[in-house]
C-alpha cells in the first residue's frame, strides 16, 4: 500500500482526481497552514495541477527533507516559485498550440506501457491541450517527453536528490482531470500513465 499526500488548495475537482484504491491511499493536506505539514509518514507527495505554489515555496525545506529520505515527488503543475530541487518550470506563450507535438525520449521503467502518447497531444482533435510552457531540467535529470521544439515536458530525476522526482510541464495526471478533457482516449491515457507511475516508480511502499 502506497501512502500518498496530496497538496490541497481547495480548487474544484481536486479531490475527485485522486481516489483511494487497494494499492494507494491519499491524505489531502490543506495549504492554509502556516507551518509545513509533516510529510514523513508518506511514500509519495503529489503536487497536483492548480496547486498553491506560494505554499510550496514556503514548504520547500520540508520537500527537500522528504526527498532526502529517498521518497517520491510527483509534480503535475507549473511551479513558478523556486522550490522543486534542480529543475524549473517556465511559462511560455511563444509557440502555437496547433504546432505542439510530443516525442518519447526515454522510458527505462516502461511508464508508457499501454499508453498512447497521441492522447496527450490531441483531445477532441485539438492539439496542445495537455501541458503548458516547458521545464528547464536539472543537469542529470532524464527528459522523458519533449515537445516539437525539443523542450522538456516530462522529466524523471533520480540524481539531484536521494529521492525520485517526476514532473510534468503543468500536464495533469491522476484518476480524473477536472474540466481539462472529456475525450475518452485522453482520459484513459492520463489515468493509465498515472497508475504506471504509481506501480513502477515508488520504491518504498509501506505495507
Amino acid at each position: 500500500m502506497i501512502k500518498a499526500a496530496v497538496i490541497d488548495n481547495g480548487i474544484v475537482g481536486l479531490r475527485e482526481s485522486y481516489l483511494d484504491q487497494p494499492h494507494v491511499q491519499y491524505d489531502f493536506l490543506p495549504t492554509h497552514q502556516a507551518t509545513a505539514p509533516d510529510f514523513s509518514p508518506y511514500d509519495l507527495l503529489v503536487v497536483p495541477n492548480g496547486t498553491d505554489q506560494v505554499a510550496m515555496y514556503h514548504w520547500r525545506e520540508a520537500v527537500q527533507r522528504f526527498l532526502n529520505q529517498g521518497k517520491t515527488l510527483f509534480c503535475f503543475d507549473g511551479w513558478f516559485t523556486h522550490w522543486l530541487p534542480g529543475s524549473q518550470w517556465v511559462a511560455d506563450n511563444s509557440k502555437k498550440t496547433i504546432d505542439i507535438r510530443y516525442t518519447l525520449k526515454a522510458d527505462r521503467y516502461g511508464l508508457f506501457e499501454g499508453v498512447d502518447l497521441n492522447h496527450f497531444i490531441f483531445s477532441n482533435g485539438i492539439s496542445g491541450w495537455w501541458a503548458c510552457g516547458y521545464i528547464q531540467p536539472a543537469p542529470r535529470a532524464e527528459v522523458v517527453v519533449a515537445d516539437t521544439w525539443g523542450r522538456c515536458i516530462m522529466l524523471l530525476d533520480e540524481q539531484t536528490t536521494p529521492g525520485t522526482i517526476f514532473a510534468t510541464a503543468s500536464g495533469p495526471l491522476g484518476d480524473y482531470a477536472y474540466g481539462t478533457t472529456d475525450d475518452a482516449g485522453s482520459m484513459e491515457g492520463l489515468t493509465r500513465l498515472y497508475h504506471n507511475l504509481l506501480t513502477k516508480l515508488i520504491k518504498t511502499p509501506v505495507s
Binding site: 506560494v54 516559485t81 511559462a91
Partner: peptide
C-alpha cells in the same frame, strides 16, 4: 508578454 525571469522566483 510572458517573461522567463518571472519564473523560478522566491515568493
Amino acid at each position: 508578454e510572458m517573461q522567463a525571469a518571472d519564473y523560478g522566483v522566491a515568493w
